[in-house]
Nucleic acid binder design. Structure first.
Lengths: 242, 242
DNA sequence: ACCTGAACACCGTTCAAGT
DNA sequence: ACCTGAACACCGTTCAAGT
């Protein structure tokens, strides 16, 4: 039945035409849209050139007219996501940075494990420039030394991506249990392992087991961001000096 | 010639025996050793069940007697690496935390992109417990509130892994150029893109382009760690209060 | 220029069968 | 219990050939 692949029957031709009308022909943007939909529903690892191509009723080779390789396609998907980022807002630089951090985190968390792509690709579209400009202006304008401001933005970005990625993987590890049960399970596991290893060898870990495992992922992320902001604030020279 | 696969010729049998003597038979540890060697020479993505098995002159199915799947094997590889970590040292909690951060970073950086495994797997061997106990003791003993100490260790670990992973990927992107050229190239690229996008739309990014791209990876990592330590220090209540 | 079928050189995992 | 060949259902990328 290989002839059917060469010459479509009238029905198959109509079906393909109908599908073509609904989903426009191959294009950079259309391919990114399909790949992003797979990311959103199943995760980055489920994106394959074959699967994306199949949604256009063709083979993987067709995609290579638009993207040099799979990596380039994923970079374009990340760019599309970053473009959708909310602009940071706030009065003082602390508020702007906090707003930025949570905006990026939310954007990444809304697309499963897309955060992992940020380690390999530095997104560099206009949106990133706009947001970076705004943060840098707020920080330097607020008295943060330029080098501290510039380097801190990088540290922040790295921490945000790491937390978003790790948070997704952690949430995937316990799909069956709800939030409360997860916390209890982690506590039980860790304390159990500690006691099994040696009853009194790790007094601090045992004593503070509850605080080590307390807090929701959001609370812990907010804590991390505030920690970094406090670190930056400690390097702002006092006002009266200038 | 499929008979050769079933019944080995005397020569082939001797060759296999010789190989077996040099490399002991299949075992949990021997498999981890081979996988780690592939990580060290080519990176995590180059580890495949087939390649590891081939080094024991067998097929991938043989490995499933020791590891439920590839993920479990990689987790064992990560555990092996973490066990080799140096113990943190120092007098005050700041020194201990800084020593810990650089020890973890060095250990991860010594094994290419192994840091990426830490996002998916929480290593939980005795070594991790020992080190965690030491840091927690130093921090809480130094006056850091327990919850701040506990949560900070997590933030630190996340940042360390993210920097190690991103640092590896960045170094891979410019294998041809040396350090100095890399810095210049990045500056040129970013400034070029900024000017191309809009000459005066991003005054801060253009003005501080040099400081945005200055510093070696090590300097920037040390800055990030000190930023986090400063953030923690800001939450230590003053001595005279107690 | 854009598109494609087929092929190449790989994957992780399973399973029946062997020892 | 440990080990294995073969098979299943996939991969990314290339290339000659088509329009």
């Amino acid at each position: 039945v290989p002839e059917r692949q060469r010459r479509l029957s009238p029905d198959a031709a109509r079906a393909r035409a109908a599908r073509s009308r609904r989903r426009p022909r191959l294009s950079h943007d259309a391919i990114v849209t399909v790949a992003l939909r797979i990311v959103d529903t199943e995760g980055v690892d489920e994106v394959s050139m074959r699967r994306v191509a199949a949604e256009f009723d063709t083979g993987p080779a067709s995609l290579y007219a638009y993207f040099a390789n799979k990596d380039e396609l994923l970079r374009a998907v990340l760019d599309r996501v970053i473009e959708s980022m909310a602009a940071p807002a706030g009065d003082d630089w602390c508020a702007v940075v906090r707003s930025y951090a949570h905006a990026v985190h939310e954007t990444l968390a809304a697309h499963r494990d897309i955060a992992k792509l940020t380690f390999a690709h530095i997104p560099s579209n206009d949106r990133v420039f706009e947001v970076s400009e705004r943060i840098l202006a707020a920080m330097i304008g607020g008295g943060v030394p330029p080098r501290v401001a510039a380097w801190s933005v990088d540290v922040l970005a790295l921490y945000i991506a790491a937390d978003a990625y790790e948070g997704y993987l952690a949430s995937q590890r316990f799909t069956a249990a709800d939030g409360a049960e997860i916390g209890e399970q982690i506590v039980a596991d860790i304390v159990g392992k500690l006691r099994a290893a040696s009853p009194d060898a790790f007094p601090f870990l045992v004593k503070y087991a509850d605080v080590l495992t307390s807090g929701t992922p959001d609370e812990r992320f907010a804590f991390g961001i505030d920690l970094l902001i406090a670190g930056v604030a400690a390097q702002v020279p006092p006002r009266r000096q200038s």
